[in-house]
Simulated assay, not measured.
Amino acid sequence: MPTVWRIGNLRVVVYPNDHRPAHVHVIGRDGEAVFVLHCPDGPPELRENYGFSRAAVSRLKRALSAVLVTLCEEWRSIHEHH
């Protein structure tokens, strides 16, 4: 599972054998959240949250929005065989 970005001590991960639509898993000590990216224009949308506070989810969404182009490129690169 490639880490494609970091937000502080959190890893933003794309699983190679995962399904569409393009999405990322944000994984940290306090939990995991899954955001659908809505490539190429966004905005990222929370699909699942396990342990992050509402405020933390808002911060994550802003951080992912700031690097959306990069995340979409990483998703395409990892899943280009589909």
Rank of each mutant, 00 (worst) to 15 (best):
V13D: 01
P21K: 15
D41H: 13
H25F: 08
R20S: 07
H82Y: 15
R29V: 08
G8F: 06
G8L: 05
R59M: 03
H81G: 01
T70M: 03
G31P: 00
E74M: 13
V14A: 01
P44Y: 09
L71V: 10
G51D: 06
S58M: 13
R11Y: 08
R54Q: 13
H38K: 15
S77D: 04
G42V: 08
H81P: 01
S53A: 11
M1H: 13
H19C: 06
V12P: 00
P21W: 14
K61H: 14
L10A: 02
L68F: 11
R76W: 08
R47H: 13
G8M: 03
W5K: 02
S65M: 07
K61Q: 15
N17W: 13
N17L: 13
D18N: 11
V24H: 03
L46F: 07
V34P: 00
C39A: 04
W75C: 03
Y15G: 04
E80Y: 12
V57P: 00
W5H: 10
A63H: 09
E48N: 09
C72E: 09
H38E: 07
P43Y: 12
E80R: 15
G51H: 11
L60V: 06
S77H: 11
L71Y: 04
A63Q: 03
L64H: 13
D41A: 13
R59V: 02
V36K: 10
R54Y: 07
G42M: 12
A63R: 02
V4G: 06
C72G: 11
A56H: 09
P21H: 15
A63S: 04
M1N: 12
V34Q: 04
C72P: 00
A22L: 04
E32Y: 06
N17D: 14
R59E: 03
R54F: 08
L10F: 13
N49W: 05
E74G: 02
N9M: 08
P43I: 08
R59A: 05
R62A: 12
V57T: 03
S53Y: 05
P40R: 14
R59P: 00
L71N: 05
I78G: 00
A22M: 07
D18I: 07
Y50P: 00
P16C: 10
R20Q: 10
E45F: 09
A66R: 15
H25W: 12
E32C: 10
C72V: 03
R76I: 06
R47F: 11
E73S: 10
S65F: 07
L71W: 05
C72F: 09
S77M: 10
N49Q: 10
V67E: 01
L10Q: 00
L60W: 05
R11T: 05
N9P: 05
E48P: 02
L68H: 06
N49H: 06
V26P: 02
R59K: 06
P44D: 07
V14E: 01
H79K: 13
I27D: 00
H23L: 08
R54D: 02
P16K: 15
P40L: 12
P21D: 10
E73V: 05
V67L: 05
R20W: 11
V67Y: 03
T3I: 06
R47A: 15
I27Q: 01
S77P: 01
V24Q: 01
N9L: 08
L37W: 03
V36F: 11
M1Q: 11
G31N: 09
F52T: 02
H81D: 02
